[in-house]
Design a protein around this nucleic acid. Structure first.
Lengths: 127, 127
DNA sequence: CAGTATCCCTGTTGATACTG
DNA sequence: CAGTATCAACAGGGATACTG
């Protein structure tokens, strides 16, 4: 039993054999995409379709403008969200997931399922 | 098309209908379990079997003792890692995933796969 | 409507040194 | 071997007020 025998399901290739936090590791790429408070809630909303700035604010009323803009800009810079400004006044902007952004869907589902299973586990052991 | 029509795959039940960060939301439970720098690397190591403190240090040489202890204690407090002190001198301690901890495995795999798919997407669109 | 601009506060990380 | 104790540095988050 060697300590270097990598688990092929968990670490299928070289990119996962990191020995310190590394932004090029796939796991970190995925984590970076969903990182930050409010991000998964925002993504959940966008998964249902394009949204305007105001619609997001209405859906997440206690999220500050600043953080909302931070999140949207970050997702944009990663190519996960597309920002489209509609001409006219008042200005209207819609945010929509890109095809890459939609690829986060299975991850969000897995997060939910894992969370449920952890909650079930800690319930049965009284934690 | 109602804005209240929840996606049953993404948000299967009431616990996912949160409007602000909420530690009882399954997604947040799962995120909390893997949160923090170094945590996924540590979990990857423990997924391969029980490890002593020194073995983990050897596997992750630039991780400081302080942060390693922080991570292990946090995982312990969530019931994901079991700490076992072996009598004798020098002291030997082994850390192992609990059954609940092992349940994080599909999540780590999904993180890896999502990361790979995001990397492939940004490669093809030149980002 | 859809943002910007500041400022502050807090938690997290990490380096270093020490101990049962 | 397996930690503990301090402390300094930094980044993230949020409140508030203002603008094209």
């Amino acid at each position: 039993m060697s300590a270097d025998a990598w688990d092929r399901d968990l670490v299928p290739d070289q990119a996962g054999r990191t020995v310190k936090p590394d932004p090029t590791c796939p796991v970190e790429v995925a984590l970076a995409a969903i990182a930050g408070r409010w991000t998964t809630l925002l993504l959940r909303d966008l998964m249902a379709g394009p949204r305007s700035f105001g619609e997001i604010r209405a859906a997440l009323p206690t999220l500050s403008d600043k953080v909302l803009v931070d999140r949207l800009r970050d997702l944009q810079s990663r190519g996960l969200v597309d920002r489209r400004v509609h001409t006219g006044f008042p200005t209207r902007t819609t945010y929509a997931l890109t095809p890459a952004g939609v690829q986060l869907r299975p991850l969000l589902i897995q997060l939910y399922e894992t969370g449920r299973s952890l909650m079930a586990a800690s319930e049965s052991d009284g934690r």
